[in-house]
Amino acid sequence: MSERVHVPTESGEMPAQLWLPAAGTGPGIVLCQEIFGLSPYVVQRAEDLAALGYVVLAPEFFWRLGVSTVSEQDGGLERGIALANQLDWPLTVRDGVAAVQWLRERDEVTGPVGLLGFCFGGGLAFNVAAKEPVSALVSYYGSALPMLLELAPRVTAPSLHHFGTADSFIDQESVAKVRAAVTASPATVFHEYEGADHAFDNPDLPWHHPDASVLAWDRTVAFLQEHLPVGS
């Protein structure tokens, strides 16, 4: 079960959901939502991370627009994109920084703090990591990454990136540019998944690729255990 919490920001309190592991304490992860907000899929991944032993904070980054979740059905993608386009991106990044700082100060967080994001959240997490030091970054098909490559030298945390080779939203030329920029850091791991589309990890979308999803999650778990070890 999650707890509804509020993260102080420069312009008010941002709603968020907080999950604790069975032990009650552990390393922290700020989970950055996909374009659909805190969708059932994002909630499931938060629960998965908590089951691994992490304290997980999932901010509602559409909070200034009065939205927590966007239905994935019946034009939901278009609504999610429209909401994302209404955001003040620098302000949203500062919200992400505030979330990392807030989580780091929680008594339940007894280890380092990392970032993990999907789609919209993958790019956002990358940008936050360029502003606020973290111990690990995992980005799934970060949709904003092609526009953020000048920030790559400022992302000093070990990072893991996942992209599909059949991404309908990020062309392969852009993926190649992302790969070249982020792997300039020796602490970066970059994986591409043959035949996988955008959002391949989300089982509630038509682009779900079961094999890529399982493999990417296994790699994510191993990466987190290396850089955000539980019980150390």
Rank of each mutant, 00 (worst) to 15 (best):
L31Q: 13
P8G: 03
L115I: 06
H6C: 12
W63M: 03
E47P: 08
V97M: 06
L83N: 09
E34M: 03
P40S: 09
Y54L: 00
E108T: 15
S68Q: 15
E13C: 03
P27T: 04
P59C: 11
W102Q: 09
S68F: 11
R45E: 13
R106Q: 14
L65E: 12
A16I: 10
G96L: 04
D88M: 08
T25G: 09
L31C: 11
D48A: 15
D48E: 13
E60D: 13
C32P: 00
D88T: 08
T69S: 11
R45K: 10
G66E: 04
E105W: 05
V113E: 03
F120W: 11
V93F: 06
E108I: 08
P21Y: 01
I81A: 10
W102T: 11
A46I: 07
E47N: 12
G121Q: 02
A82M: 00
V7D: 04
E60A: 13
N85D: 12
P15L: 02
S39Y: 09
Q44G: 08
W63Y: 11
L65H: 14
L52R: 11
V55Y: 07
L83Y: 13
R4V: 11
L77W: 12
G80A: 07
G24L: 05
A99T: 06
S39N: 15
P90V: 06
G53H: 00
A99N: 02
L91S: 15
V56Y: 10
Q44F: 15
L31P: 05
R94G: 04
G12A: 04
E72L: 15
V43W: 08
R94K: 14
V113F: 04
I35H: 05
R104V: 02
A22S: 10
V5Y: 06
C119F: 06
V67D: 02
E72T: 15
A22L: 10
R4E: 13
P112L: 10
E78P: 00
W102H: 11
L87Q: 13
G12T: 04
Y41V: 04
D95V: 07
Q17Y: 14
M14T: 02
E108M: 12
V43Y: 08
C32Y: 09
D74V: 09
L91N: 14
N85S: 14
G121Y: 02
W102K: 07
G114S: 03
L38N: 12
Q101P: 03
A84L: 07
V100E: 02
R79L: 06
E105A: 15
H6Q: 15
L77H: 12
V109P: 03
T69P: 01
A58F: 03
V5T: 14
Q101Y: 07
Q101M: 09
L87V: 06
W63V: 01
G75A: 05
V55N: 05
L77N: 05
A50Q: 00
R79C: 00
W89Q: 15
V30N: 00
G121W: 02
T9V: 07
L52V: 09
W19C: 01
D95N: 09
E34Q: 02
A22W: 03
Q44Y: 12
G122N: 03
R104C: 00
T25W: 10
L18M: 11
L124C: 02
V55F: 08
T69G: 01
Q73C: 00
I35R: 03
R106E: 11
A46T: 08
L115M: 09
S11K: 12
